[in-house]
Amino acid sequence: MPNLKSIKRKIASVKNTRQITKAMKMVAGAKLKKAQLAMNEFKPYASTYEKIIQNIANNTILHNNPLFEVREHVKNIGYLIISSDRGLCGSFNINIFKEALDSIKSKKLDNQNIKLYIAGKKGTDFLKRYNYNIKHNASATVKNAENDFIGELSDIVSKDFINGEIDELYFISNRYVSTLTQKTDSIKILPIEKNKEPINSGGYIIEPDSNEEEVLTKIFNDFIYTEINIRLLESNAGEQASRMNAMDNATRNAGKMINKLTLTYNKARQTAVTLEILDLVNGANALK
């Protein structure tokens, strides 16, 4: 017969856990709203930017920019992996790691030729165990005032690409679909995809025309910055949503566990009471 006291202690501890997960769910819910707002605000900017880059890519005239350069022998591949800084968010990070490892393996390159740029502490912790070349790691928390680390990250990746340190660059991140679903997405960012058949090769006038290269370089660098930024914002919203769901599940499971334990406790108590009565009755009978 399980000890009455130990069951009681267990119930109390599960109740505590439930309280914590409930609180975490609330916090994640509040943060999710903020993150969603930030993401939705930035989305039109990012999608317009993507469209502009597509328009530019359709123009063969601009293909001599270094960021368009397709290299025949891909020796080094860069991955920008966006994970989260904190855990306890369900399968959020696991999905990212799985996608990253699968993608890296499919390239069949030496470990040292895989260069990783990681945003998020969890990603760094996990990928440290493998023998990849981690070039840069940053936090994944987008602060409202200072987005400086995004600038740093985008500078590093575009510089590494131009210098030939990496021949291709992929982004792996969770894209926000809805509160219940986040899609893990792996996309080739560099070299910028260009259309083989020029749809619109009328060319562009670029102003100020004295330093055409500089204008384009700034636009493309800003593009990478924007892409990183929108992905971080989406990942952030996804992380909060994922945590909210995970904590909701945990709270519900804790409730179920409490019910089960209470039932066991009551049964045990009942048994104890019955035994005691039996003892009493037997004792009384013996005296007759």
């Binding site: 530019i56 123009n59 562009y204 006038i205 102003e207 100020p208 700034k218 636009i219």
Partner: peptide, 10 residues
């Protein structure tokens, strides 16, 4: 005006 040549400008 409509029909302007393509351009990029800061």
């Amino acid at each position: 005006l409509p029909g302007h040549i393509n351009f990029i400008s800061f």
